[in-house]
Simulated assay, not measured.
Amino acid sequence: MVHSADRAPTPSLRRRMACWLYEGLLMFGVVFIAGYLFGTLSQTRNALDNRHALQAFLFIVFGIYFVWFWAKGQTLAMKTWNIRVVDSQGAAISQKRALLRYALSWLWFLPPLAISWIFSVPGQEAAVLIIGWVAIWAILSRFHPDRQFWHDALAGTRLVSSLPLGTPAKAA
């Protein structure tokens, strides 16, 4: 859905969530390499040792990954699903805006994680809480005028459909 003829169309919620899930799958590789690097450099022998330092390290690594690729327009998953991140005028986003988008994208997870921590919710129930919140957060995009995710609206960014490289645009 799009409200202006000069703006690229917003990908469907189904396509954006498929991209989101694929991004999560690809992040396993990033976590593996970063976790191996952290464990080697810190000489951590037990996974529970230094876990808060590892979490902070992964937060920074994720930030570098996403800010780098978003400032270039797309992550690997976004390329696969022909989705691009742009600013509200349709231009490429700066690293500063990508960093803001990264910080705000934690709204996908922080509310249920905070509730789980505050109320000491056990693992399985916490997982249900997180999955439920992710579904609610995704569905809330239906209430945005351009059907964008709310963290994108707050960051001044948009997800738009993009043609694969080498695909000619249709003549108007």
Rank of each mutant, 00 (worst) to 15 (best):
Leu76Asp: 14
Trp133Tyr: 12
Arg7Phe: 02
Ile139Pro: 05
Phe59Tyr: 12
Leu58Gly: 00
Glu125Val: 12
Leu100Ser: 10
Leu48Ala: 07
Thr10Ile: 10
Thr75Asp: 01
Met78Phe: 05
Leu110Ala: 11
Ala34Asp: 12
Ile33Leu: 15
Leu25Trp: 11
Asp152Arg: 03
Leu140His: 03
Val134Phe: 07
Ala8Gly: 04
Gly123Met: 11
Val86Lys: 09
Pro111Leu: 02
Tyr36Leu: 15
Trp108Cys: 10
Val61Pro: 01
Met17Val: 11
Ala92Arg: 08
Leu26Trp: 06
Arg97Val: 15
Arg14His: 05
Gly90Thr: 09
Ser141His: 08
Trp137Leu: 08
Val61Met: 00
Arg147Phe: 09
Asp6Ser: 12
Lys72Glu: 02
Arg16Met: 07
Trp70Val: 04
Ile115Pro: 11
His144Pro: 01
Phe149Gly: 00
Val30Gln: 11
Ser162Tyr: 07
Phe57Thr: 01
Arg45Ala: 10
Glu125Arg: 15
His144Met: 08
Arg14Met: 06
His151Glu: 05
Gly166Met: 03
Leu113Pro: 10
Cys19Phe: 04
Pro164Tyr: 11
Thr44Gly: 01
Phe28Tyr: 14
Phe28Met: 07
Val86Asp: 10
Val128Tyr: 09
Phe66Ile: 03
Arg7Asn: 08
Pro122His: 00
Trp150Glu: 06
Phe28Gln: 10
Phe149Leu: 12
Ser141Gln: 06
Ala5Ser: 14
Leu54Ser: 08
Ala172His: 13
Ala171Phe: 06
Leu104Phe: 01
Val128Trp: 12
Trp70Ile: 04
Ala153Asn: 04
Leu25Asn: 07
Leu165Glu: 15
Arg15Pro: 00
Ala126Cys: 09
